[in-house]
Every structure is written in C-alpha cells, then in structure tokens.
C-alpha cells in the first residue's frame, strides 16, 4: 500500500512537472515571437532598383551627348524617354510601398520619383536642359539609386546567419 502510494505520488509529481514544462514551452513559443523591424531582403526588388537605375543613366547619357553636340536640347526630343523611365520609376516606388515595414526604402523611391518629375517638368517648361545641370542631376540620381540598393542590401543585416559586411560591399548600381 505504501509502495503503491509512493509510486502514484511520484507519477503525479512527474506529470505536474511535465505539465509546467510544456506550459513554459507554449508560453515561450506564443509570447516570444521574433522581433521584426525591417522586411526580408528581396532580390527582385534589388534587381528592380538596378534595372531602373540603368534606364535613368541611359537617358542621361543620351541627353548629355545630344546637349554637348547641340546648342539646345528640345523637350520633344526626349519626351518618350522621360515618360518611359517615369513609368519604370513608378513601378519601383509601388513595389517598395507595397512591402510592410518598408517606410525608409519607400521614402528613397519617392524622392527619386519626385526628382524625375521635377526635372522632366523643368525640361518641358524651358525646352532646354543645361549640360552642367544635367551632370549634377545624373550624379544625384546615382547617389539615390545607390542609397536605394544599399537600403535593400542592409535588410540582410537582420538575418542571423549571414555575413552582411561582405554582402554590402560594392553596392553601387
């Protein structure tokens, strides 16, 4: 009777300990979800940034060559390029905006779009685009696209088992 009683008590205590342990596990799983401050790195988004950057630089290179060879650069000559690339920048901005926790990259994309529209409007208004100003604007876009790409690559820093120091090297588009 005594032995049976002790065995039952031991079983009850073991069951109680196991119950507490499982409760602790359940609490940890439910209550300690991983911290999320930035979205995951998105290779498609990074490709979208470099593709859009390439389109912007191609238009600027063309404009710089044309303006260097001519006294003026009429807007009509470049209207299609301005429009085509603006569409591409809008798509890039939309992609950034659609991702959760992505306000910083969204702001960079919005800045790029805002400048593109501003410089397009100025070109349309004066029907010329000064060579010196064009070079300044091209370099500014270069910095902004580099920022957009670095912001995307910085998201790799959040992953626990990567070596982002190596991955963020040479991030310029």
């Amino acid at each position: 009777m005594n032995i049976a009683h002790r065995a039952a008590e031991a079983t009850r205590r073991r069951a109680w300990r196991q119950g507490v342990a499982w409760l602790l596990v359940a609490w940890l799983v439910a209550g300690c979800s991983a911290v999320r401050l930035v979205p995951d790195y998105d290779a498609d988004a990074a490709r979208g940034i470099t593709d859009t950057a390439a389109a912007v630089f191609a238009v600027y290179d063309r404009m710089i060559e044309m303006r260097a060879a001519n006294p003026r650069l009429p807007y009509a000559e470049m209207r299609d390029d301005w429009g085509r690339v603006e569409t591409q920048i809008r798509v890039m901005a939309l992609r950034e905006q659609a991702r959760p926790l992505n306000s910083d990259s969204t702001a960079v994309a919005a800045t790029i779009l805002g400048f593109w529209q501003k410089y397009r409007e100025a070109h349309a208004r004066s029907s010329d685009y000064g060579l010196r100003l064009m070079v300044i604007h091209r370099d500014r876009f270069q910095r902004l696209f580099t920022a957009a790409l670095k912001a995307e690559q910085a998201k790799k820093l959040a992953a626990p088992d990567t070596d982002p120091a190596a991955e963020t090297e040479g991030a310029s588009p």
Partner: peptide
Amino acid sequence: DEAATLAAELRVAAVMSKAIAQRAANAFRD
C-alpha cells in the same frame, strides 16, 4: 534638392540600424 538627397541617404542608415537592432534582439531571444 541636395538637402532632400541627403535626407534620403540617411534613411539607409535608419534601415541599417533597424536591421542590426532586429538581429541583436533575436540573438538575445534565441
């Protein structure tokens, strides 16, 4: 425009800081 460009570039530093904070918080939790 240059001031706005600098502000946009500083957004990258914000992403880096958040990503590092996320990594540190999750390393602690793990």
